[in-house]
Simulated assay, not measured.
Amino acid sequence: MPADADTLAQLLRAWRGRLLPEDVGLTSSGQRRTTGLRREELAQLAGVSVDYVMRLEQGRSRTPSVQIVASLARALQLDRTETDLLHRAAGLAPPGSGTVSDHIPPGVQRMLVRMADLPLAVFAADWTLLHCTPLWQALFGSAPTGSGQPQNLIVQTFIDGSVADVATAHGGSDGFERALVADLRRTATVLDGDVRLRSFIARVRAESTRFAALWDEGRAAAHRSMVKTVHNRLVGDVTLDCDVLTVPDSDVKLVVYSTTERGPDAEKLDFLRVRAVHAAVPAGA
């Protein structure tokens, strides 16, 4: 499929022009000569350089990677049809149905912006972290999404074991692990044509005897809710409710942590919330 650099450039400029900074969780600063996001703001959101955005919008860069196109689609809050159009203009095949998608619907992106005061994250069907709020990062000490460090909850649970250092599920790790594997098996049943997903599952089975044993039990069910204690290096242990919602007409999962309005856990979350806000404000702003 040949790329169409002129169409790609036109689309990026048009889509950037219809968004305001507050639509994507940014603070508007300085006098703006035109409406819409600035190039540097789009670059920040997509995790690419301003120069690269400029070259794309001027038609001088014709072959963006699948990862960059996906990042731009998320940053521009494109719906599925527009995401497909962006892929075709870049000379790439649109994400196919029946496969794990990293597309975050615009409504979910708005929730991430408007509910930024909660530890909220979006995961793909294979439990790869797609996006999260600053408070999620502050709570779990996770790297920002788009930083080049892929974060997959299955890998963190069964291969590198890092999840156990961050949070403890009430009732023990057994229930959490079973819920996670049952959810992934459910996904594999629905998306049985995804070669990459099958390869991923085979890899984890080979590297984790625990995962393989749970997988072979054959359980398949959506992971919905659980109480967990998060071990945070700044405020200590925080006990929170974890709820998992599958977005209608999409495979992505919305995961949110919450607690009661008052009490020590709420106070700890408030402290981290303030830290997250300060960390998001550039120096000298």
Rank of each mutant, 00 (worst) to 15 (best):
residue 188 A to E: 10
residue 140 F to D: 01
residue 164 A to F: 09
residue 155 V to S: 06
residue 151 Q to L: 13
residue 161 G to V: 02
residue 123 F to C: 10
residue 182 A to P: 15
residue 152 N to K: 01
residue 157 T to C: 00
residue 201 I to T: 02
residue 183 D to L: 11
residue 128 T to W: 08
residue 179 A to N: 00
residue 157 T to K: 02
residue 181 V to M: 14
residue 126 D to W: 01
residue 142 S to G: 06
residue 202 A to R: 01
residue 133 T to S: 04
residue 204 V to R: 11
residue 197 L to V: 12
residue 182 A to E: 11
residue 170 H to A: 11
residue 134 P to R: 10
residue 140 F to Q: 03
residue 202 A to Y: 01
residue 168 T to Q: 12
residue 205 R to T: 02
residue 191 L to P: 14
residue 124 A to S: 14
residue 142 S to V: 06
residue 153 L to Q: 14
residue 176 F to A: 05
residue 156 Q to R: 13
residue 139 L to G: 00
residue 143 A to N: 13
residue 183 D to S: 08
residue 161 G to A: 13
residue 184 L to H: 02
residue 158 F to R: 12
residue 154 I to M: 10
residue 197 L to S: 07
residue 133 T to L: 00
residue 184 L to P: 03
residue 200 F to T: 05
residue 204 V to H: 06
residue 128 T to P: 08
residue 132 C to P: 03
residue 167 A to K: 07
residue 184 L to C: 01
residue 164 A to R: 06
residue 125 A to N: 00
residue 180 L to E: 10
residue 185 R to F: 08
residue 161 G to F: 04
residue 203 R to N: 14
residue 194 D to N: 09
residue 136 W to R: 11
residue 179 A to Y: 02
residue 183 D to R: 04
residue 153 L to D: 14
residue 176 F to M: 09
residue 195 V to S: 03
residue 177 E to F: 00
residue 130 L to Y: 01
residue 145 T to V: 05
residue 189 T to A: 11
residue 143 A to P: 13
residue 174 D to G: 10
residue 196 R to M: 09
residue 180 L to H: 04
residue 129 L to A: 02
residue 123 F to G: 07
residue 127 W to S: 07
residue 160 D to L: 03
residue 160 D to Y: 01
residue 172 G to Y: 05
residue 203 R to I: 07
residue 189 T to N: 14
residue 173 S to T: 08
residue 177 E to D: 12
residue 153 L to V: 14
residue 153 L to G: 06
residue 205 R to I: 00
residue 163 V to E: 05
residue 184 L to S: 02
residue 145 T to C: 13
residue 180 L to M: 12
residue 176 F to Q: 05
residue 176 F to T: 02
residue 141 G to N: 09
residue 136 W to K: 11
residue 193 G to V: 12
residue 164 A to D: 06
residue 144 P to V: 05
residue 137 Q to I: 08
residue 157 T to Q: 02
residue 124 A to R: 11
residue 178 R to D: 07
residue 135 L to W: 07
residue 146 G to P: 13
residue 203 R to V: 15
residue 145 T to K: 01
residue 201 I to V: 15
residue 151 Q to E: 13
residue 141 G to M: 04
residue 201 I to Y: 15
residue 156 Q to A: 13
residue 151 Q to G: 13
residue 147 S to M: 02
residue 132 C to V: 09
residue 165 D to S: 13
residue 205 R to E: 04
residue 139 L to R: 01
residue 197 L to F: 04
residue 156 Q to G: 14
residue 177 E to R: 15
residue 147 S to A: 10
residue 134 P to H: 07
residue 186 R to D: 11
residue 184 L to V: 03
residue 192 D to P: 00
residue 132 C to Y: 08
residue 155 V to F: 04
residue 169 A to D: 03
residue 132 C to E: 14
residue 195 V to E: 08
residue 158 F to E: 06
residue 198 R to T: 08
residue 169 A to S: 15
residue 200 F to D: 02
residue 176 F to V: 01
residue 155 V to G: 06
residue 197 L to Q: 08
residue 176 F to C: 02
residue 174 D to H: 01
residue 138 A to H: 00
